[in-house]
Amino acid sequence: MAMPSLALIPQSPASISHRLTSSPSPVRNLIPCNTNGILQYSMWRHSQSRRKRNLVLISAVDQVSVIDPPPPPPPGNGGPPGGLVASLKLNLLSAVSGLNRGLAANEDDLRKADDAAKELEGVGGLVDLTVDLDKLQGRWKLIYSSAFSSGTLGGSRPGPPTGRLLPITLGQVFQRIDTVSKDFDNIVELQLGTPWPLPPVEVTATLAHKFELIGSSKIKIKFEKTTVKATGNLSQLPPLDIPRIPDQFRPPSNTGNGEFEVTYLDSDTRITRGDRSELRVFVIS
């Protein structure tokens, strides 16, 4: 009498699962199991009978079957594609690179920088600081100012002139903004020439302001004081506060106050346009 085939002998799912998962046969790698280790035997037989050739990847953690990865999600909130924004930001950075923050810009450079900024502003849409004020928080590095092409550090406002004949070298320029205390500090690193053989004096000037919102994207700043701190070899010297000149003695064009509009803002890039048509580009530092 012939012995019955093992394939016809009823066996428990647990025993079948043990035999197949412990077998060296490559077939076991194509059989999906659930997290409790129970073999989905009937589903596998049905799939094999239809001769499907789907590749099934078994997760090493919980053995969840995955066939195809999901498609990338569409841009959220109807905003522009991230790739387009990144491309336009790169285009703007390329337009202002090599211009020494605008000090070396000519008319053609000014036009290219302005066009690149307008493209990014157009894609970014209107800035609403009543909602996104926290994005201003932090220390921002100035990488371009159209006003510096005028030959003075004040741009169209009165300011120290620049040039090889004067012992003033402009270093890095920052804006430090605290949205809670409403502090708005312009920080300028300067190198002051001294008579030979003395080395140049390095200082950091902090022009402290308070700011307030006027409208959804416009900011008004009010000057408070200037603090000068020596750095480098003279960093042990205490900071020096320069008294504010009374308003009645200030020229009408230099009251210490100003207004500008934030025309583009995200987590690492900011574009502003001042009340004298000054274009500034900042990156978070």
Rank of each mutant, 00 (worst) to 15 (best):
A2W: 07
A2M: 05
P4L: 02
A7L: 13
L8T: 15
S12D: 15
P13I: 04
I16R: 14
I16F: 15
R19S: 14
L20W: 12
T21D: 09
T21F: 13
P24R: 13
P26R: 04
R28N: 10
R28K: 14
I31S: 02
I31R: 03
N34F: 04
Q40D: 15
Y41P: 03
W44P: 03
H46L: 15
H46D: 09
Q48V: 13
R50D: 05
L55P: 05
V56M: 14
V61A: 09
D62H: 13
P69A: 15
P70K: 07
P71I: 01
P71M: 08
P74D: 00
P75W: 01
N77I: 02
G78V: 02
P81N: 12
A86M: 01
K89D: 00
A95T: 06
V96G: 06
S97N: 12
R101M: 15
G102V: 07
L103M: 15
L103W: 06
A105D: 04
E107S: 07
D109W: 01
A116H: 05
A117T: 08
A117Y: 11
L120I: 02
G122A: 05
V123C: 03
G124L: 00
L126Y: 11
D128E: 11
T130V: 09
T130W: 04
D132G: 02
D132Y: 02
D132L: 02
K135Y: 11
L136I: 07
A147N: 07
S149H: 10
S149V: 09
G155L: 03
S156Y: 12
R157C: 00
G159V: 06
P160H: 11
P160A: 14
T162F: 09
T162K: 11
G163I: 10
L165D: 11
I168G: 12
V173T: 11
V180W: 10
S181E: 15
K182Q: 12
D183S: 15
F184P: 04
F184E: 08
V188W: 06
V188L: 11
L190F: 12
Q191L: 14
G193W: 01
G193C: 13
P195E: 10
P197G: 09
P197E: 11
L198P: 00
L198E: 02
P200T: 15
V201Q: 14
T204P: 09
T204H: 02
T206H: 07
H209V: 05
E212H: 10
L213N: 13
S216D: 11
S216G: 06
S217D: 15
K222R: 04
F223P: 00
K225R: 07
T226E: 04
T227M: 05
A230N: 10
T231N: 07
T231P: 05
G232P: 13
P238C: 08
P238L: 12
P239Y: 02
D241I: 06
Q248S: 00
R250Y: 00
N254V: 00
G256V: 00
L265Q: 03
D266K: 01
S267P: 07
T269K: 03
I271N: 08
T272Y: 13
R273E: 12
R273Y: 07
R280W: 06
R280S: 01
V281W: 08
V281Q: 06
